[in-house]
């Protein structure tokens, strides 16, 4: 028997990702969780982390978590709680051109708010640029920092890791932060124009 794509490459298939993405109607409403956990392993911290009961009770420890989309507020608590770093939050209603993606980031240096970042997909390929919109540092040694990045809309279900981008023009101070933001915004907007089109922009 041929092993599936996930177990031979470590990268989930499109069908697997589609299976954990909420329906279009829910996606437009605001932030939602994406639990990229496709294998039964003995684990339950995500269920216990959610204050809204949005992760349904597990009958067995090895069950794969299921989400109640009506209850999920996209708060992101579970992103830092998942021991497998398999949970992300995506907000496609953030703006017309950009989405927000919450990414667990256990690396140094941790980007600061406003820093430009490269966005990487599930295979570690650089797929675009974004901006660290909000950074929730984890307290050492237990915490997992979470970086909420602003990303071009069409990358909402693609970008799953980040790398700090060169801060060429950046000096300490808000003004240059802003400049970097704008530069990066421009790059993002440019990319979304040439890309497949933001999912949020498409109305049916």
């Amino acid at each position: 028997m041929k092993p599936d794509m996930l177990m031979s490459t470590g990268v989930p298939s499109k069908q697997q990702i589609d299976g954990v993405t909420p329906p279009e109607s829910r996606r437009k409403q605001g932030p939602f969780v994406v639990i990229e956990c496709f294998q039964e392993i003995p684990c339950d911290p995500c269920y216990h982390s959610c204050r809204f009961g949005a992760i349904k009770p597990l009958e067995s420890l090895n069950d794969i978590p299921q989400v109640d989309w009506d209850r999920c507020t996209g708060c992101g608590i579970c992103v830092a709680a998942c021991p497998g770093l398999a949970i992300f939050v995506v907000d496609e209603a953030f703006s017309d051109t950009e989405c927000l993606i919450a990414i667990p980031y256990e690396f140094v240096p941790l980007p600061e708010k406003g820093d430009p970042v490269y966005l990487l997909d599930r295979e570690g390929r650089r797929v675009g640029q974004g901006v660290a919109h909000r950074v929730v540092p984890g307290r050492k040694p237990q915490g997992t920092p979470v970086v909420w990045v602003r990303a071009p809309n069409e990358l909402s279900m693609e970008a799953r890791h980040l790398l700090p981008a060169e801060k060429a023009s950046k000096k300490a101070g808000q003004a240059s932060d802003k400049a970097a933001d704008q530069a990066s915004d421009k790059a993002s907007a440019g990319e979304s124009l040439t890309g497949k089109g933001g999912m949020n922009c498409v109305s049916r």
Partner: peptide, 8 residues
């Protein structure tokens, strides 16, 4: 010197 989880 710098590590995301540990201090040395």
């Amino acid at each position: 010197k710098q590590h995301p989880i540990l201090d040395f």
